[in-house]
Each structure stands twice: as structure tokens, then as C-alpha cells.
Nucleic acid binder design. Structure first.
Lengths: 253, 253
DNA sequence: CTAAATCTGCACTGGTCGGTGCACTGTAAC
DNA sequence: GTTACAGTGCACCGACCAGTGCAGATTTAG
């Protein structure tokens, strides 16, 4: 549950072979890597950047080709046309982002003692994903082009509607079963936690134009977790969360 | 604090005179309204719709002119060029949305008895604003073009960074002072409530492609208010909120 | 070595679109 | 009347760009 298969669609056999041998994108410092066939990776990465920066319509294939140090023809050889390139670039980036998000949520698996600390840790990582420059670029691109390319929705998510929140719900369910959270609908709890994290950021980031410092990111995560635990924690009860002495909600930066 | 002045910038005297006499957009059923000068309003409304549907770059002035039943030249007479038209259209729509949001928040002013019910009412209205088709169009357009036109940020908000959340904070402060909410940073409380509302919707709306039924909207508002009151309500205390018998959080639709 | 495949540089086409110029119409003010 | 002005319809220019064709260079496989 990571590759989704979608991203791989339409690859040229040669390109697949190429990325199977060397790859890892940030290849060794050898300049230009002549003759090798990580062209495809370069095209995808550059295309995403240019599309995000200029928008689909404004972005020109000449610009992408130039910036990727590749002939325009090479792009057509790999992807056929502009639309396919957009889809492939978005799919690749979405997979990257999704994997990062799921990895963060997965840290809830090895929860030892302090639930609040663990949640804040995971929250901080999710916040970091959200504030990531590339994350913003992806979101902007989706908002921009979703009405032109409705199928992008299916490309970025697997069959699930929102794999990250679902994974979060899974983890919260286990925590509730272990008595660390109030019993109830784990999906609802996950939704509220995710909303607290991303909702605050959406307001603060001003459509991605404002950069959020690490300290501010952490404060947002703390405030979100604080509110969340008030609503879903085992009150002043037995579990690892002794009401936490009113940790001042959201120390603004 | 409503006109912001920005929207009015660049109007032609004649157009101003025209809208001063008749206007109210949805003019009486008189077809085509020949000779009258609500052309400007028609252009702005149509431009917003077309821009939102096609994106700035894809949208053609010919299409806007045709759809607004106006000669292309008329558009240039009023706005000079495409960029100015975009800014004016967005400014007009943003003002509309902002006014609607502020009106919703303002209903917290005449709070009589049941705080939970009042909050759910306001929450529902804010949710409705967010789910509004035009609201989504505006947000999509902003996400899409903010990197090309960073000044759109200043156009849509007054001097305040987020007038709606600030107004909400004002109202929450009064409620806290009256003992209906826990004392603390009202700005933080407002941020969390707004995050719970919009964050949940952001996830559910799938970039604006999915329509949210009225029932689902109400459920989202209820869940948000429930979580919010757990965190910021005067616990099982004296005020009008007697713990509310565990109103099952988020009855999914 | 040869052969197949890929990549490159360049020139070209066909279409689209922002913006302009011009001649004309209809209305309102004087 | 006439003067002024907002709007209309049409044709046009110039720029930009997706996509193609071609000829030659480079690489990999055998």
C-alpha cells in the first residue's frame, strides 16, 4: 500500500530499467550524467516544479525541457503530451507526500508511555508535511487544476478516500482499546485531530505565501493535541494523561 | 469595515453612477436591460465564474464577453486589461463572502441561553459559507493564482490577516468574560474552533468536487462544537452547558 | 564492428488569444 | 438640432505555444 500502481502507469521499458539500476534521484555529484537514462526522473521533478510555479496552462514544455536539461522531444517520447506529463508529475509527488504522511502516523504504533508527547510528536511531523514547500505546491496545483482534470483525485488517493486519516483512525482505535483514549468512533476522533492540525495551518499559511517557523509549527501541534485530549482523552482518569496541568493552549509565536 | 475600499478602485464614474441608481445585481426580470449601465456588474460576475471554471490563463476574454452578453471592447473600457479584471472580480467576490462570514459570526452577539445551540447555529452557517459553490470557486482561484498574483492576498483581506477569526475571537472573549467559556486566549480558542470547522470540511469536500448535504454540514458543525466545548467550555460547571449528555460526536451521514 | 534505441537541435505549422483600430449605433444632456 | 459618451461588431496584428518532422549524435546490446 504505497506504490498504488498508478504512478507506474505508462513508463517506457527503458526508463523503468534505468531507474531500476541507479536512480535515488539525488544521484552522485557527477554533472549532467550524460547518456544515462534518469532523464525521466529529471523530467518529472522539473515538470512538477514548473507546473506548480506557473500553473498548467502557463507552463510551457520548452521551459520544462530547458530547466530539466533535456530536449523537448525527449519529453514527448516519454509522456506523449502535456496532460499525461501533468498527471505523471502529480502522481509521483503525491506518492512521495502520502508516504511521508503515513510514516508519521505510523509512529503512533510504538507508543510507550506519554500519550501527549507521542501525539505531539506525530502532530508535529504531520504539520511539517503540511508546511513543506513541495506539499504546498502540490496542494495549489490540485486546487488549480481539479476542475480541468477531475481524475487527478483518483490519481492522488488509492481506493481509500483519505488514507492518512484512515490510518490515523486505526491507530487511535488501538489506543482507545488500550484505555488511553475515550471509546467512541475512532474515525470521528481522527477527523477532529486532523482538522485541528491542518485547519490551523490553512489559516496561518495564507495560501502558502507565509512560511511557518519550526517553533510555530510545534506550537500549532501542541495546541491541537491539547484540544484533542480535552475532548477525547480519558478525562482526569487513570491513563497516561493526568490532565497535563493546563498546558497553556497555543503559545503564539 | 466592509467595503475595504479595494473593490471600488478603478471604477468608471459612469459605472459608479449606474450602480448607484439601479443595481442589486439580480435586477427585475426585464430581459437584457438594454442601454442601462449595469454592464460592469455583469462583467464582474461573469468574469469570476469563467475564471473559476477555466483558470486565469485558460479563460479567454472572448468567452467572458460572450457569456456576459457584452462586447469585448466594453471589458477593456472598464478594466483595461485581463489582470485588472481578475483582481476586480476576485475582490468583489471576496467582499461578498467576507460579509456573509462576518454576519454569521455576529449572531453570537445576541446569545440568550443555550451556548451549545448558539455555537452550533453559527457553526452551521460558517460551514454553509465554506461549502458554498462560489466560496469554493473563490478558494480554488486563490490557490491557483496566488503565486502569479501575490497581491491578491491584500485584496481579499482588509488590513487584518483574518477578519473572520478575529471577529470570532472577539465574541468568544465576551462569552468567556460572562463565564460561559473558560478564560484563556480567545484568539487561540477562535483558531481551534475555526480549524475544527474548516479542517473537517477541507477533508470531506475533496477539493470542492464533492457536495456536502445539509445534514452532513450540520453534523460537521455539531462535532466541531462538541469537541470545542470539551476543550473550552466551563466543564460540568454552572453555565448554560450541562455537559450536554455526551451528544454522540459526529453522526456520520 | 553493427544495429537498435534514445537523445538532441532546429525549423516549421497550425491554432489560439490579448489587445487595438475603426466605423457605427443608441442614448442622454444641453 | 448637436455634442458627448458608452457600447457594438468586425477585422486585424503580433506573440506565444503544443506538437511534428528530420537529420545527426550518442549510447547500449550483441
Amino acid at each position: 500500500m504505497l506504490g498504488y500502481g498508478v504512478v507506474m502507469s505508462g513508463r517506457t521499458p527503458a526508463a523503468a530499467a534505468g531507474s531500476a539500476t541507479t536512480t535515488t534521484t539525488g544521484s552522485p555529484a557527477r554533472p549532467s550524467a550524460r547518456g544515462r537514462i534518469d532523464k525521466r526522473e529529471a523530467i518529472l521533478a522539473t515538470a512538477f516544479v514548473v507546473f506548480a510555479r506557473e500553473g498548467y496552462a502557463q507552463a510551457t514544455l520548452d521551459a520544462i525541457a530547458a530547466e530539466a536539461r533535456v530536449a523537448k522531444h525527449t519529453i514527448y517520447n516519454h509522456f506523449g503530451d502535456k496532460q499525461t506529463l501533468l498527471r505523471a508529475a502529480i502522481a509521483a509527488e503525491a506518492d512521495r507526500a502520502m508516504a511521508k504522511n503515513l510514516a508519521a502516523v505510523d509512529r503512533l504504533r510504538d507508543h510507550d508511555g506519554d500519550l501527549r508527547a507521542t501525539l505531539e510528536d506525530v502532530g508535529s511531523q504531520l504539520v511539517a508535511c503540511y508546511c513543506d514547500e513541495r506539499g504546498w505546491a502540490l496542494r495549489r496545483l490540485l486546487y488549480a487544476e481539479i476542475s480541468q482534470f477531475p481524475d487527478l483525485l483518483d490519481i492522488i488517493t488509492g481506493r481509500a478516500s483519505d488514507p492518512v486519516t484512515e490510518a490515523l483512525a486505526d491507530r487511535l482505535a488501538r489506543l482507545a482499546l488500550a484505555g488511553h483514549l475515550r471509546a467512541g468512533d475512532p474515525a470521528a476522533a481522527a477527523e477532529q485531530l486532523a482538522a485541528l492540525l491542518t485547519g490551523s495551518l490553512e489559516a496561518r499559511c495564507r495560501y502558502g505565501t507565509r512560511v511557518i517557523s519550526a517553533a510555530e509549527q510545534h506550537a500549532v501541534a501542541r495546541a491541537a493535541v491539547d484540544t484533542f485530549l480535552h475532548a477525547f482523552g480519558t478525562a482526569p482518569g487513570p491513563a497516561g494523561t493526568p490532565a497535563a496541568g493546563e498546558g497553556d493552549p497555543a503559545a503564539r509565536c
